[in-house]
Simulated scan of single mutants.
Amino acid sequence: MLAIQFGRFGGPEVLIPVELAAPVAGPGEVLLTVEAAGVNFADTHQVDGSYLTADALPFVPGSEVVGRTADGTRVLARVSGGYAEQVVAKESAVQPIPEDLGAAEALSLMMQGLTAWHLLRSAARLREGETVVVHSAAGGVGSLAVQLAREFGAGRVLAQVSTPAKERLVLGLGADAVITYPHGEKADVVLDAVGGELFDQALGSLASFGRLVSYGNAARSGFTPLDPARLNRLNAAVVGFWLRPALAAPGAVSGPLKELFGLVAEGRLKPVAGGSYPLAEARRAHEDLLARRTVGKIVLIPGA
């Protein structure tokens, strides 16, 4: 079968199409034929070796797929090695999905939807009427966080984006305004996956008892010094968030996913399908993602 693998850490150029033996499902597992594999920004960190945990090489990235079981059931699944034509998943990590739900829309609710949900509910502990700022608001996580913040009771939702087209997108999703730093409004919650200078600017914008939730380092800026005395003066908090261990908690997947699918079914949450790439062109997908040429959820399609 065709799969995408990297044998050394680096940029998108290390992603190589290879032929591998098809996986075999073991006890408690199910074999899936992949319809679409989700691409997440965390995948780029795995590829360049900056992810929070190191993976043994060679490695096939991909943590989520839409696929079909041997009996033809269409499912959404959390996996390892999803950039492939076939993959095995734990039976407990597989959820049937409707035939009329687009693959990109379904995949957006898995890692990115769960991230957005937990950022607001578990990490920031958003309260009614608070002001939320979402960095990278046109991306997969950000576009969902903008909508969920409103759904969860935020008083104002402010977005940070990089282009006029992305500004139009997030305003259409319900953001009250697009901001640049410095700006006049104080934020109760800031969701930041960029780090570096943007992190520092966001920290200075927090209201008293505000929370800045850091869940990524897209700027690849290295260590960001944080002075506890500054937090004292701001009367604010910095919260770190990593999805992988968060999902190990009881109910951390099934409950939030049920809520997310329900909101989509009711038309109150609109996942943004950003585009698809042939599986063999995973390198180009990563290049576009890193260059901020994408919005919403991008996917890889085997056989395209």
Rank of each mutant, 00 (worst) to 15 (best):
263 L>V: 07
212 L>E: 07
284 R>C: 03
244 R>E: 14
207 A>W: 00
182 P>L: 06
240 G>W: 00
171 L>K: 15
245 P>C: 04
185 E>I: 03
279 L>D: 06
262 G>A: 00
274 G>N: 07
258 K>M: 10
189 V>R: 05
267 G>L: 09
217 N>Y: 04
276 S>C: 04
243 L>G: 12
172 G>S: 01
263 L>H: 13
250 P>Q: 08
271 P>C: 08
175 A>I: 01
269 L>T: 13
200 D>C: 02
182 P>T: 08
269 L>F: 12
255 G>D: 14
196 G>E: 09
202 A>P: 07
229 A>L: 13
260 L>C: 05
182 P>A: 11
174 G>F: 14
217 N>Q: 13
199 F>M: 06
253 V>C: 05
260 L>S: 04
286 H>W: 06
231 L>F: 09
184 G>W: 03
262 G>W: 02
241 F>K: 12
260 L>P: 01
285 A>M: 10
207 A>M: 01
210 G>C: 07
231 L>N: 00
224 T>A: 08
178 V>A: 12
280 A>P: 00
246 A>L: 04
284 R>E: 14
210 G>D: 08
212 L>Y: 06
260 L>E: 02
214 S>L: 12
198 L>P: 02
272 V>A: 09
220 R>S: 12
207 A>Q: 02
173 L>K: 13
289 L>S: 13
186 K>M: 05
250 P>E: 08
206 L>G: 07
262 G>Q: 05
174 G>A: 14
237 A>K: 10
228 P>D: 06
225 P>T: 10
242 W>L: 11
